[in-house]
């Protein structure tokens, strides 16, 4: 690839350079159309919408400046939803990573009987559409005849049915648990990939030195796959922020808004207002922009943190 740069004269005119790469740009067109329309445009349009008082009908658009943001900062429901989104992410990502790592370490042993079958079974919830999971889990956890409550009652573990989805103190944790169950399969595959990078000679050398199995796992394998943990955490965090389908299909943010995360809040204000109130697309956009910016800032901080850690690991530079 380096050679293709040097063939371009260093001081070639801008037009010449663009013309030389015309076929490259042509190849970018289909992708850039999709990217521009459905990712980039919405990003900027949201910011414009957030400055409007707008119910969705063009005639009703009115520019209100930062009034939506000012109102947002006063809105208790907004801050609650904002906080819940972060609580949800911060609780599900570590849980998901830990559970999947345990599965991956066990299943990485190819001599284990039926390990391919186990891997497939653990993966099944991942391929099940979220809306379906929402419905099945609502039935499973129902306090009236739901199989989970019946099982717990029969086993004598509880003496009164637990309303997993109807108790405001419990609902977010129930949803987090279901979320982790649904997505652990993917994270497990990532860990399995990371484990493949540990060279076989290491295991052999450790064995010759008489190191025990669990010691190999803790002191050799885990440190070797830590760099992957950062990538896996990033991917899992992206997933945990897109939790709308699960929550909408199970609780719609209830009871009493106890499970209303950011996306549910946006959806409610923009498309599904309570008691037939006028939809407020501008206000909902402001919430989206605020939340999106908060995530971007965190992403950038995280990238810098990763770069810093990596540069400390390898002093010579990449």
């Amino acid at each position: 690839m380096a050679s293709s740069i040097s063939t371009v004269p260093h001081r070639a005119g801008l037009g010449h350079r663009l013309w030389q790469s015309r076929i490259d740009y042509l190849f970018l067109v289909p992708g850039m159309v999709i990217f521009g329309l459905f990712i980039l445009y919405p990003l900027f349009a949201s910011q414009w919408f957030s400055l409007l008082n707008w119910s969705g009908f063009d005639a009703n658009q009115a520019f209100v400046g930062f009034a939506n943001y000012a109102e947002l900062l006063q809105d208790k429901y907004f801050w609650d939803a904002f906080a819940r989104s972060f609580i949800f992410t911060l609780s599900t990502v570590p849980a998901q990573m830990a559970v999947s790592l345990v599965f991956a370490i066990i299943l990485n042993n190819k001599l284990l009987r039926m390990s391919a079958l186990f891997r497939t079974l653990i993966f099944l919830p991942v391929v099940t559409p979220v809306a379906i999971i929402g419905i099945v889990m609502t039935i499973m956890l129902s306090p009236f005849n739901g199989p989970v409550n019946i099982g717990l009652l029969d086993a004598g573990l509880i003496n009164r049915a637990i309303d997993f989805l109807g108790d405001p103190n419990l609902v977010l944790w129930t949803l987090a648990g279901i979320f982790v169950w649904k997505w652990v399969g993917v994270t497990m595959v990532y860990w399995l990939a990371a484990l493949q990078t540990v060279p076989a000679e290491l295991y052999e050398a450790a064995k010759l030195d008489g190191v025990k199995g669990w010691q190999v796992t803790f002191f050799i394998v885990l440190p070797m796959i830590t760099p992957f943990a950062i990538v896996i955490a990033l991917i899992s965090a992206i997933g945990a922020l897109n939790v709308f389908p699960l929550i909408q299909s199970m609780t719609q943010g209830g009871p009493y808004f106890a499970s209303e995360v950011m996306e549910v809040y946006i959806f409610r204000n923009a498309f599904a207002t309570l008691n037939g109130a006028v939809p407020r697309l501008g206000y909902a956009s402001a919430a989206g922009v605020f939340f999106g910016l908060a995530i971007m800032v965190l992403t950038i901080l995280q990238i810098f943190a990763v770069r810093y850690l990596r540069s400390r690991e390898k002093p010579n530079g990449a």
Binding site: F38, P42, I238, M262, T299
Partner: peptide, 13 residues
Amino acid sequence: TMFVPQGYTIIPV
């Protein structure tokens, strides 16, 4: 744009 959640883009889309 990798981290932009769907809730952020749904209205303009």
